[in-house]
Design a protein around this nucleic acid. Structure first.
Length: 214
DNA sequence: CCTATGATGATCT
DNA sequence: GATCATCATAGGT
């Protein structure tokens, strides 16, 4: 093992904890996406925790449905959902099993495979924008619902896996309200990001959309 | 920098 | 029928 370049993957136990512990601990970690097109590695800089059926901001709040069922399953799997008619978002399910919690991966820095990410993210004006936002991150990694429920620890080369990385010092980890979450879950400070990192997405408060006049 | 708005369809009530 | 864990674009400051 080469000193200073530890690529030892996290274990499933890493995810078998409270989502509020796992979420900030994912910052600075490297997510790896293997596909036929190539490999992308993204260093996570911004995440949000969704804390089970008691969390009004969570898709699990109203119980198990076809869409959210993997959140109720074992930790260390993906939860991918489709939203706004166009976009995908990628979450990692945390434990303990049955608690239906997950971490939304909101932003990161592409460290490997930027050329491939640029092809998938044509509208990005610079490399800091390649994965600056949850749907942008999913697009850069070519993540869609076919990857929903993927096991991060399946076999030697899973489609998605998490390597050990270098978590930032605790005083560089910031937290605040979750982006785009309204209602009773709006004020929980369960968004975590690395201070001053240029790949973190801008905060946006939840705004109820007014229907178009008929 | 900022705010406003259309795109687009699955999901849930 | 309303909502939605969003983004790209247009235009103002």
């Amino acid at each position: 093992m080469t000193k200073g370049s530890d690529r030892t993957p996290l274990t499933r136990d890493f995810f078998d904890r409270s989502v509020l512990d796992v979420a900030p601990d994912l910052l600075g970690r490297t997510l790896v996406r293997h596909s036929d097109e190539g490999t992308i590695e993204v260093r996570l800089t911004e995440v949000e925790a969704y804390a089970g059926e008691a969390d009004p901001g969570s898709h699990a709040f109203r119980g198990r449905t076809a869409r959210n069922s993997v959140m109720f399953g074992p930790p260390g799997h993906t939860y991918v959902y489709f939203t706004y008619g166009m976009w995908h978002c990628l979450n990692l399910v945390c434990g303990p099993e049955g608690h239906a919690s997950g971490v939304l991966l909101r932003a990161g820095e592409i460290d490997v495979g930027a050329g491939l990410a640029r092809v998938r993210r044509v509208s990005a004006r610079n490399d800091k924008e390649l994965a600056k936002g949850p749907a942008r991150l999913a697009t850069a990694l070519d993540v869609d619902r076919t990857l929903n429920g993927s096991d991060l620890f399946a076999g030697p080369t899973p489609a998605l896996s998490v390597l050990h990385g270098t978590p930032p010092p605790r005083d560089q980890v910031r937290s605040g309200p979750r982006t785009g979450v309204g209602g009773d879950g709006a004020h929980q400070p369960w968004r975590f990001w690395i201070e001053s990192d240029p790949t973190v997405s801008p905060y946006r408060a939840h705004v109820p959309r007014r229907r178009r006049a008929k």
